[in-house]
């Protein structure tokens, strides 16, 4: 990574801002139970990092995710959420009742924290991929028009 992308501003903003934004998004996701944050904010932050890297480096960016893959991953995120909801149904609970999740835990609220983390991962993937997806569709259409 010694090649320069363009001017000094683009170079510095790619090397400093993009990794910081991605790591901060993951921190917001995993720390969302103890501090302000959660799935939606983490997904939007991660999408902002990837969109920034795409705006700087173009379509051949290192962190790039193409539009077709983004649609699939958005579905996968929603499916993770719904699966976490359906899983307790097979172990004697209600829909989205985290007390019946089949994970080893000593106390009940640990199971609840595990369920909250799982559904927030689902929300994060869905929001992030939807934002990338819409931006990709808009820019692709512009390429055709040109």
């Amino acid at each position: 990574m010694t090649k320069r992308f363009g001017g000094i501003v683009l170079d510095i903003s790619f090397r400093v801002l993009v990794p910081f934004t991605l790591v901060y998004g993951i921190y917001i996701l995993t720390h969302g139970e103890f501090s302000p944050g959660g799935g939606f904010q983490a997904g939007a932050l991660l999408a902002a990092g990837i969109v920034l890297s795409r705006l700087i480096q173009g379509r051949s960016a290192g962190f790039n995710i193409s539009g077709e893959h983004a649609v699939i991953w958005a579905g996968v995120g929603t499916f993770i959420y719904a699966l976490t909801g359906f899983l307790p149904l097979f172990f004697g609970g209600n829909f989205l009742d985290y007390s019946f999740l089949p994970f080893p835990a000593e106390e009940l609220h640990e199971l609840h924290a595990m369920g909250i983390l799982l559904i927030e991962i689902g929300v994060t993937i869905c929001v992030m991929m939807t934002i990338i997806d819409i931006l990709d569709a808009v820019t692709e259409r512009a390429d055709i028009d040109d």
């Binding site: 939007a44 902002a48 705006l55 808009v138 512009a142």
Partner: peptide
């Protein structure tokens, strides 16, 4: 309400990117 403020900050950035890209296209 720091949660709502955080959401508004991130979504403000993303929507500005959307507006600028749409205007460019």
């Amino acid at each position: 309400s720091p949660d709502v403020a955080f959401t508004e900050a991130v979504i403000g950035v993303v929507s500005t990117i959307y507006f600028v890209v749409a205007l460019k296209n």
